[in-house]
């Protein structure tokens, strides 16, 4: 109960704002001030979702979700692994950190056709885009977090005879958590974007594919139906990570 009240306090202004925009849009479209193929009325987007729920939720959503999940897991495992490697080895850091930075400068959309060339129209071309786009915030978040341990804390543990490994476990890892989670929250949102972009470039299913097909048909309700589901999915994923974060970082959120 208290949580709901707090939630309303935080988001009520935003909800009212959203509602006003929706009502305004609805009015503009219905009174034909804006043509429906430019921006559809919110109610027709909802109708479109309901009418097409079967292909949307049973075919396209699972396809996108799978690409997204595989890509995200690979990015997390690989990103954390690389960050730990760079933390322990100057050689690894010097060799790969610039490469990680440069990977971010690559316009991924331009690179994506290459993935289609490599992996064909399989799920892996989408996974590759997802990994490439969500890898960076995880590596940087984890690596910066691991490095953030105060020298004085390290000295305290060393004075007790702690080995590098036990300092890593007892100090570096917990210290890295806040920064790791910041990276993770960005990454999970990026991963969804990555999966969608991947589908644009070549796919036969998925919400990104669906929205592109609908735009080809000048069916703006259909485009926005897919976008709405993707947005809600993104919010859900973000909220999920935030929830886990609050659990793990309890010490940061209690006062």
């Amino acid at each position: 109960m208290k949580q709901i009240k707090q939630w309303l306090q935080t988001y009520s202004l935003f909800l009212i704002f959203t509602l006003i925009i929706f009502i305004l849009l609805e009015y503009l479209v219905r009174s034909e001030l804006i043509p429906a193929f430019i921006i559809p009325a919110p109610t027709s987007v909802i109708t479109s979702i309901i009418e097409n729920w079967k292909p949307l939720f049973l075919e396209h959503l699972p396809a996108t979700l799978l690409e997204f999940l595989i890509g995200f897991v690979i990015a997390v495992v690989g990103g954390v692994g690389l960050a730990v490697g760079m933390f322990f080895s100057k050689i690894v850091e010097k060799t790969l950190y610039p490469a990680v930075l440069i990977s971010q400068m690559i316009p991924i959309i331009a690179l994506s056709p290459i993935f289609v060339l490599w992996f064909g129209y399989t799920i892996w071309s989408k996974v590759a885009v997802t990994v490439l786009i969500s890898f960076f915030p995880i590596v940087v978040g984890t690596y910066d977090g691991l490095k953030s341990s105060d020298k004085e804390y390290i000295e305290l543990l060393r004075s007790m005879g702690a080995t590098r490994m036990s300092i890593f476990k007892k100090l570096n890892i917990p210290m890295a958590m806040p920064s790791f989670f910041s990276g993770l929250k960005l990454a999970i949102v990026y991963a969804l974007v990555g999966a969608t972009i991947g589908e644009w470039l070549g796919a036969s299913e998925g919400l990104g594919y669906y929205s592109r097909r609908m735009s080809g048909n000048l069916n703006s309700e259909g485009v926005f139906a897919a976008i709405t589901i993707l947005t809600l999915l993104g919010i859900l994923m973000f909220a999920l990570i935030s929830l886990i974060e609050k659990r793990v970082l309890k010490w940061k959120y209690t006062d």
């Binding site: 804390y153 543990l157 007790m160 005879g161 702690a162 036990s166 007892k170 917990p174 970082l249 010490w251």
Partner: peptide, 26 residues
């Protein structure tokens, strides 16, 4: 046994976990 100028208690550990940390290390 060394007690530095700042208390340096680890913020994620409870007080009892903080004072017992040496027994985890040694």
């Amino acid at each position: 046994g060394y007690m530095p100028q700042r208390d340096l208690l680890l913020p994620w550990r409870t007080i009892i976990e903080n004072i017992m940390i040496a027994s985890e290390i040694q």
